[in-house]
Design a protein around this nucleic acid. Structure first.
Lengths: 373, 373
DNA sequence: CTGTTAGCGCCTTCAA
DNA sequence: TTGAAGGCGCTAACAG
């Protein structure tokens, strides 16, 4: 492949002129510029990024640091980032932090960013102190998506508000026996969203004098399969909630599948609500709290581009996208009366002591709706 | 950030010695080596990839060219690639070809590969002639995933065999009125899989003297939502198949959802079978043909690594992974008799003229099982 | 074993 | 408007 020298020779000018003509900066006479352009395209010339980067100090690459990219949310954010950056001639360097298990992650390392990226976009993972120090030392623009990190601009939804919306809707429907899917093992300290959502869930319930017992709280890996496995055990119990709030749609899918596998009707016997508006949530008819995931990626890309152009993108910048409740067929009010009257689920103890007596006395039926699969 | 010169100064040696010590090549006295290592880590030194690349000609980056990043199959392949490359210190350069619509794609451009990548892995998209010429001109190792391209080694499953397995199973169950989801608009010429699968489907049917009428052939964008929309129209017809073979699990999800939305029981009234073993196929209880998607990515990554090491990875190399039928709850034999006898679907004309009379006389019921949602 | 030096391909002064 | 030359950070001969 040809170098700038080849083009210079072919066009009969110096390399400096080629450089100037090709980048369109400085003044170059139209005639020589055309000659250069012709020679360059003739030779399929493209400037070596390595050489350009060596002298300019910029790489036109943006490191995108993600805990997983094999999952819908992250792949969608990254897709939004990539399209935005591509339009400006930048590209994405994938930095997948995924470790051997859900509980572990790889550290952000210097050699995946140093002189290789002009900036970094961090998805949903609060950096550890050493990583924080590294990023500061690297002195490149950083944008976070999904979490607010002090010192950096961010793009996100309000996880607590989203969960409050979901939980609020469950209460509004009249549910008082509410389970939760989406806590994570204590070892997972690198993800903020699971904590925020769980906390908001607990708070909203508490405001109504309700608590969700541990047996109804499903700890899982935030996959549909993981949620299914845990929900499977939940629905095998003699008592189960009339509604399960899942911290993500994918987990909601798993919970719904488990309920049906146990002969429960959704939403007749159990309502399920998720968060995200996953690409499959509509056809699976899952009530959810919608967030525009790709837009978060696009917006993060734009912020990065602006920072790269030298524009001041303040750390105070905190773009919080709206979320919206989308009611679909996976939720309904709890049954106020059992159809047969025989198989009334025993009310869990914690519910009998709350103030929400008006509805808490209407537990679900454990075995109706067995036809629905 | 520090350069090799800073380290040399700090260790009291020349830059050449630093370079040698750090890379562990050539002979360096243990004592000076330790001094260099200490100085380097003290200064957080990491060699500039640009400078290294400029002189060595290698970037340690591999371009991964994909028609979509945002879909399960591709994200999973890429995940496998990335993990494999990362272990050897290489990284992935994302080249997402996705254009504004399903029908269009961006071309593979020279400036996303030239001097930026040491090799390219192409996912499921046969390059156009000009792209082919570019890749040849770039003279870098290329591995294809999902399709066989002459001149390059490949990793894939046999799409035709996979579809034959799915279709064969439908026939084995006794279905003769079989629909298909997964043809693509004529403008989509850059994806091979849709064609291979459709062709194999038609051939297997033909071997049994059956054809699938156009009205039962759903052309869509290979998303669950797209399949849902088309299947929605299919199930609104007075006649509909007793089984739908979908060219991907995601489309199968959409078909199943549409069937249920029309009050049809799956598999009672309609069987649905997919291909892929998508991460949600198990909980959604979808019969499918399993392929190990991440393994294809891993294997492609290994091939690339071997080629990069100078090993001869012949273009004749064609690694075809096994596929496997996974029978789940979305399929069953067709009903041989209507329960009520009232709402018999009119037999589509093409079926009355085939030789498959023994089963073709047992069409599905259009309105039973309305309880299943 | 270690230091010196010449590029890798490009951009950027500084002169002309 | 154009050319010559220095240098970005590093590696690879070649000396010593």
């Amino acid at each position: 492949m040809s170098t700038i020298g080849d083009v210079a020779k072919a066009a009969g000018v110096s390399v400096a002129t080629v450089s100037r003509a090709l980048r369109g900066v400085d003044r170059v006479s139209p005639r020589t510029r055309d000659r250069v352009l012709a020679a360059a395209s003739e030779l399929h010339y493209v400037a070596s990024p390595a050489a350009t980067s060596l002298v300019s100090g910029r790489t036109r690459g943006i490191g995108v640091i993600t805990p997983y990219f094999n999952r819908w949310f992250f792949a969608t954010v990254i897709s939004g980032i990539e399209k935005t950056l591509r339009d400006e001639g930048h590209h994405v360097l994938l930095c997948d932090l995924e470790g051997p298990t859900f509980d572990t992650r790889m550290p952000i390392t210097q050699n995946m960013l140093w002189k290789r990226a002009d900036g970094a976009i961090i998805l949903n993972v609060p950096p550890e102190p050493s990583e924080r120090a590294l990023l500061d030392r690297l002195d490149m623009p950083v944008v976070t998506v999904g979490n607010r990190q002090s010192g950096w601009p961010s793009v996100r939804v309000d996880d607590r508000a989203a969960m409050a919306l979901a939980t609020g809707y469950a209460l509004e429907l009249g549910h008082r026996a509410i389970g939760y899917a989406g806590t994570v093992p204590a070892s997972v300290t690198h993800l903020q969203t699971p904590f925020d959502r769980r906390e908001a869930f607990g708070e909203v319930l508490a405001q109504h004098g309700i608590t969700c017992p541990p047996a109804w709280t499903l700890e899982c890996d935030w996959t549909a399969q993981g949620a299914f496995d845990h929900a499977d055990r939940l629905f095998a119990r003699p008592d189960h909630p009339t509604c399960v709030v899942a911290a993500s749609d994918e987990m909601a899918f798993g919970v719904i599948a488990a309920a049906r596998r146990h002969g429960l009707d959704v939403p007749g016997d159990v309502s399920v609500i998720g968060i995200d508006d996953h690409v499959h949530a509509q056809i699976l008819d899952v009530t959810t709290v919608r967030q525009d995931v790709e837009a978060q990626g696009r917006y993060a890309g734009e912020l990065m581009l602006r920072a790269l152009k030298g524009e001041e993108v303040s750390a105070a910048h905190d773009h919080v996208l709206e979320v919206e409740l989308v009611v679909r067929g996976s939720t309904a009010p709890p049954r106020t009366r059992t159809s047969g009257g025989s198989s009334v689920t025993r009310l869990p103890e914690h519910l009998t002591t709350t103030s929400a007596s008006s509805v808490a006395t209407a537990p679900s039926v454990g075995s109706a709706g067995a036809l629905d699969r």
